[in-house]
Amino acid sequence: MNRRRRLAIALMLITSTIILNWTYPDTTALGERIFLWIGLPVWSRGASGLNYVGITSMMMLFAGVFTLRTSLQRHARKIALLALILPFWLPSQLVAAYQSVWAKGIYALEYVKDESKCNFKKEDDQVTGTCSLTFVNHSGQDIQFTASIRNQRYLVGSFLESLDILGDQTLTMPPRQKKTINVAFTKIIADARTPASGTFYGMDLAVKSDEQERDL
């Protein structure tokens, strides 16, 4: 196989890795959607365990980087290292550029999950608390939207599993800003096992604005 053909195969494998792991505008990777569409399992144990999409994409990436290195005559090591980093760095840069220039409404919204949390306190059969949700508005216009916590595996059985009350409050993000919005909530619970107080971090959200909806 000549060098040109090996180079074409390498670029195809590396590009396929980026495509499989592409998540914008929602959090579900494109590779997971493709696997489900053709009837392949995404996880080794239903909704947990080994992620077959991740394993497949990493195998394709290493194969692509190895093939790329063998197809180059000069600077092979440096270019191969760059190709190894590219799939992890490029998608976020492309999304940020798109959100800053072209995206409208909630499609210009970035949710900073690792800076978001919910604190709660239980009194009798009522839970009160505040969710601090951090967003970045990449657009030049105000964004108004509602947010609710999506069902997650680690929330099953807890009152936060269905904390839909967040969806009743309209949130506003000013243009070109990063902001933490505090959203108060009150919820009646029947589960006596709910702790007296606590904190949840890194919740997955569903945001809506008119007909637009995204999972973040």
Rank of each mutant, 00 (worst) to 15 (best):
residue 2 N to L: 06
residue 9 I to V: 14
residue 10 A to R: 01
residue 12 M to P: 01
residue 13 L to V: 10
residue 14 I to R: 00
residue 15 T to E: 02
residue 20 L to T: 01
residue 21 N to T: 04
residue 23 T to I: 11
residue 23 T to G: 02
residue 24 Y to D: 00
residue 25 P to H: 00
residue 28 T to Q: 15
residue 31 G to E: 00
residue 34 I to K: 00
residue 41 P to L: 01
residue 47 A to K: 05
residue 50 L to T: 12
residue 50 L to C: 01
residue 57 S to C: 09
residue 63 A to I: 04
residue 65 V to W: 02
residue 68 L to I: 01
residue 69 R to N: 14
residue 79 I to N: 02
residue 90 L to A: 03
residue 92 S to P: 10
residue 92 S to N: 13
residue 95 V to R: 00
residue 100 S to W: 05
residue 101 V to F: 09
residue 111 Y to D: 05
residue 112 V to C: 06
residue 115 E to I: 01
residue 117 K to H: 11
residue 120 F to N: 07
residue 120 F to H: 03
residue 124 D to Y: 13
residue 125 D to M: 11
residue 126 Q to E: 13
residue 127 V to R: 10
residue 128 T to W: 05
residue 128 T to L: 04
residue 138 H to Q: 13
residue 139 S to M: 10
residue 145 F to T: 06
residue 146 T to K: 14
residue 146 T to D: 06
residue 147 A to W: 07
residue 153 R to Q: 12
residue 156 V to L: 15
residue 156 V to A: 09
residue 157 G to S: 02
residue 159 F to V: 11
residue 160 L to Y: 11
residue 160 L to C: 11
residue 161 E to N: 12
residue 168 D to H: 06
residue 170 T to S: 13
residue 175 P to E: 09
residue 177 Q to W: 04
residue 177 Q to I: 09
residue 186 T to G: 08
residue 189 I to G: 12
residue 190 A to H: 12
residue 191 D to R: 11
residue 192 A to H: 09
residue 192 A to N: 09
residue 193 R to K: 13
residue 196 A to P: 10
residue 198 G to D: 05
residue 202 G to A: 12
residue 202 G to D: 14
residue 205 L to Y: 04
residue 206 A to D: 08
residue 209 S to G: 09
residue 209 S to T: 07
